[in-house]
Structures are given as C-alpha cells and as structure tokens.
C-alpha cells in the first residue's frame, strides 16, 4: 500500500476547506500517536464528500480538525480563506457558529429546547436575525412542520437527526460536517437523513463533508476519500457501493 504524493491529489481552486500538511499527534514523546500524518487535501464547494477508513485511521480526527474542534499539531487548515491555525478559541467558536453546520451521531440536540429552538440555536447564539422564508423552506423540506414545538425526548431518532440537519442548514454555512450521522439510526431513517444531505447539496448548493464507515452511506457522496494510518490513500470520484467495497477490500489486503 503506497500513499499518494501531494501532487497526485487534485487541489481544486474552488475549495470550501483545505488541509495543508496537516499533522495531528496525540500525546507526546515516545507514547505519541500520529492521527494525521501531513495530510494535504481540499473539500470542493457544493459537493458531497465522504471520508472513510478503518477505525483509528484518523477520519474523525480529520473532520474535527477541519471543523475547528481540534487544534492541529502542525501544518495548516483553512475554511474558505480563513486559516484556522491562526484563530483563538473564541474566534474558532464564532467561526463554527456562523460558518459551519454540524450533524453528530448522537446528542445532537439540547434536551430543554424545542425542535424549533434547536434549529435556530446557532443563529440565536450569534444574535443573528432568522430568515423566516428560509426557515419555512428548510422545515417543510425536512417534514418537521408539526414537530417544531416538541422537545427532543418527544421525537424519534430519525426526527432528531432531521432537526439536526435543519439546524445545520438554517444559517447557510460554508460547510456542513456530519460525523456518522446515520450510526444510531435504523436503515430507513438513515436513508432519509442521507437523502436530505444529498438534497442540501443538490437543491441548496451546500457543501457537505461526512465521516462514515458504512459503504452504503458513502455511496450517496460525490467523492470518497480513504484514510489509513492518518494518510490519504485513495480518492474516489463518483463512487458507488461496489467501487467503495472494492477499494476497502484492497485497503485491507
């Protein structure tokens, strides 16, 4: 198995996010573990990118670093033209609030808030006005109209993830990061959520980056990046389940 060199990776000029020689080590000295080994890549705007790899490959770390949740040990990371490395914690927080959408595997919603207030959470945190027309569009698109005044405990798992997707869409972020968004759902709810992420790209021109270990989920993406031991080992454009499975088999071989 040979890692691709930098020049072999397609660097788009239309990048929503970029990593340049991103290095992430956990711990220090002899016990340190390299989670990202000088990764260089970019996320194309208005496309749906999936990141795959075996556990411990660094795929979640890559997503966390891209999203400004985890600082790098070395290298650079950009959201648009903003260099994340140069930002303070509170600047990073504001960046996440105003320019990034999140869909996590679990614990996506604040339990004391209704669905509506969970959806508008990021806007309200920034005290930004809520675009009512856009809100209605998103809510209707996700079929949440009659669930707006329910608390998370009154919603099914699929509904909760739809609320999370709505929250990710509502402030029209530069990128939506989805971390195993279907990991806790039954397959039909999972399909539904993936469909909405796809729609977000196709109908609303959003950029989505999703970490998953499920080839079926990754097949919804426009592009799949494969990570092993903190390095990008393959970049698959226009994937389907077969090509993904084939690539995974090759990685395991």
């Amino acid at each position: 198995m040979v890692a691709l060199t930098d020049s072999e990776i397609y660097l788009t000029t239309n990048a929503a996010a970029r990593a340049e020689k991103a290095l992430k080590e956990f711990g220090s000295g002899d016990t340190s573990v390299v989670a990202l080994d000088h990764v260089t890549m970019s996320v194309e705007a208005e496309r749906f990118t999936a990141i795959m790899g075996p556990s411990g490959s660094g795929k979640s770390t890559l997503l966390h670093c891209l999203a400004g949740l985890e600082p790098l040990t070395g290298g650079s990371m950009y959201i648009g033209d903003t260099d994340l490395v140069s930002l303070s914690d509170s600047e990073l927080t504001v960046l996440r609030r105003d320019r990034i959408g999140f869909v996590f595997q679990t614990f996506n919603l604040v339990p004391t808030m209704t669905a509506e207030r969970n959806i508008t959470l990021q806007l309200r945190l920034g005290r930004h006005p809520i675009d009512r027309a856009w809100f209605d569009t998103v809510v209707d698109e996700l079929g949440l109209r009659d669930r707006l005044h329910h608390r998370p405990s009154e919603l099914s798992g699929g509904q909760q993830q739809r609320v999370a997707v709505a929250r990710a869409l509502i402030n029209r972020p530069d990128i939506i990061f989805a971390d195993e968004p279907t990991g806790n759902l039954d397959s039909s709810s999972g399909q539904e959520v993936l469909g909405f992420l796809r729609q977000a790209v196709d109908n609303f021109g959003q950029t989505v980056v999703m970490v998953t270990h499920d080839p079926g989920a990754a097949a919804h993406a426009d592009r799949v990046i494969f990570l092993v031991d903190g390095r990008i080992v393959h970049d698959l454009d226009g994937p389907n389940v077969d090509s993904i499975l084939g690539q995974l088999r090759r990685l395991e071989a």
């Binding site: 509170s90 504001v94 960046l95 996440r96 609030r97 999140f102 679990t106 959470l121 945190l125 929250r167």
Partner: peptide, 16 residues
C-alpha cells in the same frame, strides 16, 4: 456534559 459539549461545538463561546 453531552449537551454542553454540543453547545460548544455548534458555536457557544466559553463566555456564553
């Protein structure tokens, strides 16, 4: 802990 983590992730500042 979970929801505080979530709030911080989606952009609640430490000060908030």
């Amino acid at each position: 802990t979970h929801e505080l983590g979530l709030l911080r992730a989606v952009g609640m500042t430490r000060r908030q």
